[in-house]
Amino acid sequence: MRLQDKVIIITGSCTGIGKAIAERCVAEGARVVIHGLEPDLGETLVVKLGPENARLHIQDLADADAPQQLVTLALEAFGKLDAIVNNAAMVVSSNINTTDADFLRQVLEVNTVAPFRLIKEALPHLSRTRGCVLNIGSVNAWSGEPNLLAYSISKGALQTLTRNLGDTLHRENRVRVNQINPGWVLTEKEAQRKQEQGLAENWYEAVPPVFAPAGRILWPAEIAAAAVYWLADESGPISGQVVDLEQYPLQGRNPPKDTSTLATTTKPGFDTAVSKL
């Protein structure tokens, strides 16, 4: 039990990567606060994990009192706080032509400002337990896809937040801050997005090798397995680190020399992934 008796807040955990992290944390002995915007899915997850192991909070993270509500729930339900996982994010398509200042601010509020606010609210309690923060970023933090401009900006900012606080909070508060950057993950929402872009229901069974050398993209459970290391005491004093979780190197990777092969294998909806190369 690598997380025995730890209490962890996981934002955006009614579905996808957050849900997988919550399930794995409980399996490793932790108790969790589930958060999201889908009451039915959240309630189903709490029943699965057991009310003794999980509590649910439904609220938009952009709300001014959301961080306080989450921390208070953790303390009232379980008596302490050992870690927070900033996973919730707006994953929305936009480019320079479709992104205005108000839209960019909205994305930044959820994807970057909300994690900052939750860290600040939780800090006194994490200091008492010598706890940790795990931010869930994205490989798009490095540059991003053409149609994920606002999202990519927000994840780049989150990455800098992790590097900065990972140093300062570790020195001053004994709280570690690290980040994992998932690549392309087969979540429920990603499956739906690709269908909306014109792909077949089983599109993930035929992802071109240039995007998935392994023959498939990542699963949420694989991200959750990596998250446990950073939440557990076994990661020791490591802080301020950002780790990419993708099946090929993002920086320095070249597209295939035979672009005609790529053209014949690419399907509608896969085009935005090309810029990951």
Results as ranks from 00 to 15, higher is better:
residue 60 D to K: 10
residue 209 P to H: 05
residue 39 P to K: 08
residue 121 E to S: 11
residue 137 G to A: 05
residue 240 G to Q: 08
residue 257 K to Q: 13
residue 213 P to K: 02
residue 85 V to A: 03
residue 231 L to C: 04
residue 135 N to F: 05
residue 149 L to V: 12
residue 237 P to G: 03
residue 245 L to Q: 02
residue 250 L to Y: 14
residue 137 G to W: 04
residue 224 A to V: 00
residue 167 D to M: 10
residue 56 L to Q: 06
residue 185 V to M: 06
residue 274 V to N: 01
residue 185 V to P: 09
residue 94 S to I: 07
residue 174 R to C: 13
residue 141 A to D: 03
residue 182 P to M: 04
residue 217 I to L: 09
residue 147 N to T: 15
residue 2 R to A: 10
residue 31 R to Y: 10
residue 151 Y to Q: 03
residue 66 A to R: 06
residue 234 E to Q: 11
residue 160 T to Y: 01
residue 246 E to W: 08
residue 187 T to M: 10
residue 167 D to I: 15
residue 77 A to L: 06
residue 234 E to Y: 07
residue 119 I to W: 05
residue 274 V to W: 03
residue 11 T to N: 04
residue 204 Y to L: 13
residue 209 P to V: 11
residue 276 K to E: 09
residue 206 A to T: 14
residue 50 G to C: 01
residue 135 N to Y: 02
residue 12 G to F: 02
residue 11 T to L: 06
residue 126 L to C: 03
residue 158 L to Y: 00
residue 235 S to C: 14
residue 210 V to T: 10
residue 149 L to G: 02
residue 109 E to G: 08
residue 130 R to P: 03
residue 227 A to S: 15
residue 170 H to E: 08
residue 65 D to N: 15
residue 231 L to Q: 05
residue 175 V to D: 01
residue 184 W to C: 05
residue 245 L to T: 04
residue 72 T to A: 07
residue 86 N to E: 05
residue 159 Q to S: 07
residue 277 L to M: 15
residue 141 A to E: 08
residue 237 P to N: 08
residue 97 N to M: 11
residue 262 L to K: 02
residue 205 E to L: 15
residue 141 A to T: 07
residue 145 E to R: 12
residue 87 N to H: 09
residue 33 V to Y: 00
residue 14 C to Q: 01
residue 159 Q to N: 04
residue 41 L to Y: 07
residue 84 I to T: 13
residue 150 A to F: 14
residue 73 L to N: 01
residue 131 G to P: 02
residue 37 L to A: 04
residue 193 R to S: 11
residue 102 D to V: 14
residue 277 L to D: 03
residue 151 Y to V: 11
residue 190 E to K: 06
residue 175 V to Q: 03
residue 162 T to Y: 01
residue 150 A to C: 11
residue 211 F to C: 08
residue 156 G to A: 09
residue 81 L to S: 05
residue 97 N to F: 15
residue 69 Q to A: 15
residue 137 G to F: 02
residue 110 V to F: 04
